[in-house]
């Protein structure tokens, strides 16, 4: 469905997509790198370092990559929250529906109130007539 969205809205939506892709890509890449490190595929041949140093470096790199995965996950949560917010703020059909519903509700409420007030007024007017009659014909005034 193509809609004529304003330029900045379009850009925003695109940025959401790119954020999603980037985060997922980052998760995947980091995970792959961790697996590679665990397999020890990398750095065997040209390893010039001391073995212990190499192990330490791998450990550190794995931690950083794990932290990157976590960061990407939280960024995804933020993205979900942003998309929710965007949807809430820009979902005009649902807002219109809510407004229609509200106005319908208030209209029925108003009608109810009006009817009640009318019947109340009629009752009071009838009673007032009787009371006025009674009051003005009595000797206590």
């Amino acid at each position: 469905m193509h809609r004529n969205l304003p330029q900045n809205k379009e850009a925003l939506l695109k940025s959401y997509t790119t954020r999603l892709k980037e985060d997922i890509k980052s998760m995947l890449e980091n995970f792959e790198e961790i697996i590679k490190l665990a397999k020890g595929e990398r750095g065997e041949s040209e390893s010039q370092l001391n073995r212990m140093t190499q192990i330490e470096q791998d450990t550190f790199e794995m931690q950083v990559r794990a932290a990157n995965i976590v960061r990407a996950g939280e960024s995804l949560m933020k993205l979900v929250s942003d998309i929710k917010q965007y949807l809430i703020l820009n979902d005009f059909p649902s807002v219109n529906e809510a407004i229609t519903q509200n106005s319908k509700l208030f209209r029925t409420k108003q009608q109810e109130c009006d009817q009640k007030l009318m019947s109340l007024r009629d009752d009071i007017a009838a009673d007032l007539y009787d009371l006025e009659d009674e009051y003005f014909t009595s000797i206590y005034k």
Binding site: G40, I55, T59, Q63, A66, I69, V70
Partner: peptide, 22 residues
């Protein structure tokens, strides 16, 4: 074994980071 232990430790640390995030 040193290498295996080293990798185990490294994986453990990475897993801890992931678990903490989760």
């Amino acid at each position: 074994m040193v290498q295996v232990y080293g990798r185990k430790k490294a994986l453990g640390a990475a897993a801890a980071v992931l678990l903490a995030g989760v």
